[in-house]
Design a protein around this nucleic acid. Structure first.
Lengths: 402, 402
DNA sequence: TTGGGTGAGTTCTACGGTGGAACTCAGGGT
DNA sequence: ACCCTGAGTTCCACCGTAGAACTCACCCAA
């Protein structure tokens, strides 16, 4: 989808070489371009080794990429070895920009990034009107504003594509099949936005988007087998095996919410005792704390109180952290990843309750199991939006949403 | 490994065409041959569609395979459609035979199979001497006996490779890195056996072997995302994602044994309450039943008593089945497979306790989750040995153990 | 200063796998 | 007897690749 040729939005793009599109590249040339994008400046010799190609083939393949300006030769980077110095190939990351928009029930968070997913600017807007047309209008306004920012930037390239992520299932051609928070069901979002903006728009599930973002430009670079767990309003889960995101029908839509963690724990609306939703989410933590503290509290306040040693907050936080540890260990035991990335808006829990978390992971892991790297990533809406931008980058570079 | 040219064992092989080996085939020809092996007779036109090749390429690619006798043209199979009838390609599965041997603490179970993993004969031998040399001698005797059987068969081809599977980690070149049941640690098994037999020998973990067997010639044919759970002396687990077995360092060595299932359940030696080992294994079921029944009982007897309505046996079986249901649901929730295959020597539990099993799976699955196919496979040692044979077939066909 | 060593990158050619056009083949339907 | 249809064949042009022979750019040592 969204294979229409990228068109600039807003003012005319600054002086830009003719440019070869990434998508129609042949197999080997495409692999080379992607490798350079992901792994920074790389000399032709390294690329030849990596893809098992001859040096001659690399010269042949890289020339049109250089001629079109898609890749550039970096200068001044020398290897420590003897022999002729390498002239590594690199991408000019500012030659293309992307906008990522993360939709929540109330707000649209947007970022402008370069081709390498470096965030250049950020904006957000309240979603006063959550009708499809209203959301599309808000998103379009954010994109236009950020695109204008990109055009004002010092010689940078225009916005090439837009990524939109939300909690819900997304089908073909940018259609939102169901989005609980927005109350949508079978709503076309990508195509109306493309019509409004004249730009390719990719709509994707927020968790799959974040997971792919970690894979390409995040904490899981170079790791072909990892999982992402997020806690916030709900519990999110993404899985990458064999260097590919697991995109099963159930992926990314919070089906882990009722994973049993502690049968003595609090009840959830569906009658489960101590399931993930009833133990780990921001709402679960604050409402448990409120019961003990006999007053309403905000999430950050509970965490602060726990740090200060308040017994109620400490207990609530540690219980939740133990639950998260159990969930992390279960993911580790059943999917056998090298790494689990803990993330989400409520993930400070994993820092405040770190001891309880690690204790539970250790208890649930087989002592003979190989080490499981647990990587806590403080993320906010900016990272979710960046994930959406990376989905747009992937579409631009790969030609598909996957 | 085991790339030495296959040599016949025992008598001279019966009249055999020159034969092209599977392994040095080029990419496309190899894919075609494997597809024909796995998916039965296939016409060239179907193969061309499947691999996105032109009809001309298919003629070119299939000719040497037919000339060498690796593939044969089947006759008399016509499509229902109009046009010229197809002449599907097939393999002559009896042109090559394989031996698979499953090692337990006390016994070596062996089967002789065709290229399509059809079991032709089976034998077993007690492992009176569990020293590496003793086991190798026993295995070699079994292989020689079955190879002689293959030679006596009506014009069938000789044994081409041998697969050995056991519970434990297996390293490079057929070295057993650790095998709890045999008390081995860093024991070379594959190479001594190759020397004894003059045949390629592949040693593999029994669970990965069984999982790959289900993938190629078992209940998971054509399914690119499934899990295998076995219960017996221990709890086994294998996972296939993106059509490839997850071969992490922890795969196949029973690390799920202490997966928490029921915190009110019985204790295991490591102090876990209600972990998988303490609830699901044959030993756990029989010892719990023995406590309630005030006498020693065998596993099958417990299951029979449960069928007859004995309250103690019923309770023990249902508790275990619920635990298995919880484990199955956890696998489903965390790895999102299309199918979970329940298997192993103790799997009759899943039939006798079917209601409790399904009830627990339903309770732990999100009601909005997509359907999870639960496939209970009554397996015995014959299937474990067949799994080992399929590992040998894979090595013969693919040239690698994976 | 100069020449050799070294590994990066280029040029050119032979080769092998591929698609596609034009063809034959073997059935069914009218 | 004729055409239609889809399977399979033959042949040729094309394209991506490896490999050999080459140049290039730097370091080092005499």
């Amino acid at each position: 989808m969204t294979t229409s040729p990228p068109a600039a939005v807003g003012t005319v793009p600054p002086a830009q070489r003719p440019g070869v599109a990434w998508t129609p590249l042949t197999g080997a040339a495409h692999r080379i371009a992607v490798a350079v994008l992901l792994d920074g400046p790389l000399p032709r010799s390294e690329l030849a080794r990596r893809f098992d190609l001859s040096a001659g083939s690399l010269t042949r393949l890289s020339r049109p990429l250089l001629d079109s300006g898609m890749l550039v030769e970096t200068t001044g980077v020398y290897d420590a070895t003897s022999g002729r110095p390498t002239r590594p190939l690199d991408v000019d990351e500012t030659s293309h920009h992307f906008v990522g928009v993360k939709l929540t029930a109330t707000t649209a968070h947007a970022v402008l990034t370069t081709l390498r997913a470096r965030v250049v600017a950020a904006e957000e807007a309240l979603l006063l009107d959550t009708s499809p047309a209203g959301v599309a209008a808000t998103v379009a306004a954010l994109v236009r504003s950020l695109a204008a920012h990109a055009d004002r930037g010092s010689g940078g390239g225009p916005v090439r594509a837009v990524g939109v992520s939300l909690g819900g299932r997304v089908g073909e051609r940018g259609t939102v099949r169901s989005a609980r928070y927005l109350g949508w069901d079978g709503v076309p979002l990508g195509e109306p936005l493309e019509d409004l903006l004249g730009l390719p728009v990719v709509v994707d599930n927020d968790l799959l988007s974040l997971t792919r973002a970690e894979q390409w430009f995040g904490a899981a670079r170079g790791c072909d087998h990892f999982a992402v767990l997020t806690i916030g309003e709900g519990v999110g889960y993404g899985l990458v095996v064999h260097d590919e995101v697991v995109d099963a029908p159930d992926a990314g839509v919070g089906l882990l919410g009722h994973f049993p963690l502690d049968p003595t724990g609090p009840l959830c609306p569906q009658g489960h005792a101590g399931c993930a939703d009833g133990l780990l989410t921001i709402g679960a933590v604050t409402s448990r704390a409120a019961v003990g503290l006999r007053r309403e509290v905000r999430y950050e306040e509970v965490l602060d109180l726990a740090v200060e040693g308040d017994p109620v907050a400490r207990r609530v936080v540690d219980d939740a952290a133990r639950g998260l540890g159990r969930l992390t260990a279960a993911v580790g035991n059943l999917t056998m990843p090298r790494k689990v990335i803990l993330s989400g808006d409520g993930i400070r829990l994993a820092e405040v309750g770190r001891a309880a978390l690690l204790e539970q992971v250790a208890a649930d892991r087989n002592p003979h199991a190989s080490e499981l790297v647990i990587d806590v990533q403080r993320t906010g809406f900016r990272e979710w939006a960046r994930g959406a931008a990376i989905t747009a980058i992937r579409t631009f570079v790969l030609g598909t949403r996957a």
